Computed example of a mutant assay.
Amino acid sequence: MPLRTCGYSQEEDKLICLVYMQISQDPITGAYQTSDQFWSRVVETYENEKNANWSERSRRSIQARVQTIEKATKKLHACIRQCENRRPSGASNDDIFNQAKVMLMEDPKYKSGWKFDHVWNIIKNFEKFQDQDTHARQVRNPCGIGYTSSESENPTPDSAAQASPGLSSFSLNLDDSEDVTDGTSSQRPIGVKKSKLKRKCDDQTSIVINTLEEGNKRLLEQLEKTTAQREHHLEIQSRNYALKELKE
């Protein structure tokens, strides 16, 4: 029976979330990889970037941790939306966020409360970690949700120094959700996948239209050529018939 490993540290959670987001948003292979290939890349990237002193984590363990964070985050987004809909006069974003965390504890599955303040500002705008209604609202309002936890609202220089060396190739800017590619970070707007898909469809449509137009143009030219040849042939036949009549 395998030994039970210790719980995940905050730094491990941050790296796992960043790696998961990076692989999910890869514009080159993101849409063409199987589930097995996806998780293999997640585990491989995590192993390459983690601190050597961290505990060994199996693929199953990492996958389960991501799913745990994902489910809790979706549930919190739903609570935030409910609190926002009944927002009392004068309530700030922090008030709404704290009310949502209290509401989350009413769910029997989350009696112990929200446990992921340390990654909230990394994943709060990540599409896959949002419930459908929250994502739909963000598409209509690209500014997204502005809630920040009291723990990470104002990161200090010390917090950056505490990041372990294994996180050096990732940005841990907790003020924004970021897309991490090739060790550099650049903010990815909401709905970027849909925009890329739309551009791809538009390009393919343009290619089809151009092909059809070119084909129609060639067909028209061929018809005109055939018509001219037929008229010329009829003209010759008519001339020959007239000569035959004259001879007779």
Rank of each mutant, 00 (worst) to 15 (best):
S58M: 04
G191N: 08
R41E: 09
L172N: 04
S89E: 14
S171W: 01
V66L: 11
S9T: 15
T156E: 10
L15A: 04
L234E: 13
K75W: 02
G30P: 05
Q99F: 07
L174F: 06
P165W: 02
L212T: 08
N240C: 08
A228R: 14
T45R: 11
C83V: 09
R239G: 03
N141K: 09
K128Q: 12
K75L: 10
Q82S: 04
E178K: 07
A228S: 14
G183T: 04
V102W: 05
V66I: 15
K200S: 14
G30R: 08
S40N: 11
S152V: 00
R188E: 15
K75R: 15
V180N: 13
N216E: 14
F126H: 12
T181G: 08
P165K: 01
Q187W: 05
S9H: 03
N121H: 08
G191V: 04
F126R: 06
R41D: 10
E245H: 08
S61C: 11
M103T: 03
N173T: 08
V192W: 12
G144V: 00
H135M: 06
F97H: 08
W39N: 10
Q63K: 15
D117G: 04
N48M: 11
D131S: 08
G166E: 05
K101E: 05
Q67E: 15
P108M: 02
P155N: 06
N121W: 00
M103H: 03
I209E: 15
A136Y: 05
K194C: 00
H135I: 00
E127K: 13
S159E: 08
L219G: 04
K111H: 05
Y8F: 15
E84G: 09
K247I: 12
K244Y: 11
W120R: 05
W114P: 01
V119W: 02
E12T: 02
D133L: 08
Q130V: 01
V42P: 01
S168N: 08
Q99N: 01
S149I: 01
L223T: 09
R57Q: 03
K196D: 07
T73D: 06
K247R: 13
T148E: 12
S195R: 10
Q22G: 10
S152F: 12
A163Y: 03
A242T: 08
Y32R: 12
T148Y: 04
K193C: 03
Q132R: 07
V180F: 06
T134F: 03
G215L: 11
P155Q: 12
Y147A: 13
D203F: 12
T5W: 00
S58L: 11
V192K: 14
V180L: 13
V66W: 09
Y241E: 13
K115I: 00
P165Q: 06
R87D: 07
K244C: 11
N51M: 00
T34F: 13
Y147F: 09
I145M: 10
T148S: 14
M105C: 12
K198M: 09
A163C: 07
L212R: 13
Q204Y: 09
I122V: 07
L212W: 11
K247G: 04
N53S: 13
E106H: 06
S149K: 02
E11A: 10
C17P: 04
K14G: 05
D13K: 05
E56H: 12
V19H: 10
D179W: 13
V19Y: 02
E49T: 01
D26V: 02
M105H: 01
Q204D: 15
C6G: 01
A72T: 14
D117E: 13
A161N: 07
K247M: 10
K247Y: 14
K198G: 02
E44Q: 13
